[in-house]
């Protein structure tokens, strides 16, 4: 059995045993609760927003938590001296995180289709969720590399939320509509993420769609290269006898 498959099965088993999968499902149920409480007859506007919150913060947190557990228990030390490549290690966590985001999408979409009218292209949404989750799982790696413990990971996440997520949402709800601010926001990955997710509702221009796609695809590639390159120093710091 290829080592990537072994790692994927192992990671899946661990997110179940460590209740990370359960927490992820609970969060999805909370999003369903939000949809239930939404009084708007058409939830097309809210739906991508919930996926935005899930695909960004939950993806960062999921990667961060699994690495944190491995660091805390010392299992990371022994993983680092096994015949697995660093690419396999990164891919395992990315694939599991993206799968969790897709599961959330599926649960929300099923609820929406049955109980609330929604006008979204599921497959566009699926692609968007996967790309946003991929990008942010890599952000999770970078933040974990530079976080000494779980508290410092949460602090780093807080900084990311403050710097990127909150401004993006403020602008999205037209609470901050200054022209310069709106233009500067195109530098933020969260702007690209929310743009791509709303593309499934057909409410954005093709120019914005191309911007969001390019940003997240190229950004993910660059982050992956960065995560690979800095994995060795992370391994040297966390591993060893």
């Amino acid at each position: 059995m290829p080592n990537l498959v072994v790692l994927l099965f192992g990671e899946f088993k661990r997110i179940v045993e460590y209740k990370i999968a359960a927490a992820s499902i609970v969060v999805a149920l909370i999003w369903i609760g939000v949809l239930y409480l939404t009084e708007a007859p058409d939830i097309t506007f809210f739906f991508p927003l919930l996926l935005f919150l899930d695909g960004t913060s939950m993806a960062i947190l999921m990667v961060g938590v699994t690495i944190f557990f491995e660091k805390q228990e010392g299992s990371l030390r022994t993983i680092l001296v096994t015949p697995i490549s660093k690419t396999d290690y990164l891919l395992t966590k990315i694939l599991i995180t993206v799968s969790a985001s897709v599961l959330t999408l599926v649960l929300l979409y099923i609820y929406a289709v049955i109980f609330k009218p929604v006008s979204l292209n599921f497959f566009a949404l699926l692609g968007a969720v996967m790309l946003v989750s991929l990008f942010h799982s890599l952000v999770g790696f970078i933040l974990s590399y530079y976080s000494k413990d779980f508290t410092s990971l949460l602090m780093n996440m807080f900084v990311y939320t403050l710097a990127f997520m909150i401004p993006t949402m403020l602008e999205h709800f037209n609470l901050l509509a200054h022209n310069l601010f709106s233009k500067l926001l195109y530098l933020a990955p969260t702007k690209a993420a929310i743009t791509l997710l709303y593309a499934s509702a057909g409410t954005i221009s093709s120019g914005e769609l191309i911007y969001a796609l390019l940003y997240l695809v190229i950004g993910s590639a660059l982050l992956f290269i960065y995560a690979l390159k800095h994995f060795d120093s992370f391994a040297a710091r966390e591993g060893g006898v």
């Binding site: 072994v6 192992g10 088993k13 228990e73 299992s75 030390r77 022994t78 006898v241």
Partner: peptide, 29 residues
């Protein structure tokens, strides 16, 4: 790493898995 073994001073296992599950997971690699 196929040829070497590393024994640590501190515990290095997944605490919420059984001993058998831990060993089985690493053995497959």
């Amino acid at each position: 790493y196929q040829e070497i073994g590393v024994g640590f001073e501190v515990p290095v296992h997944f605490s919420k898995l059984t001993a058998e599950e831990n060993i089985a997971f690493f053995k497959k690699l």
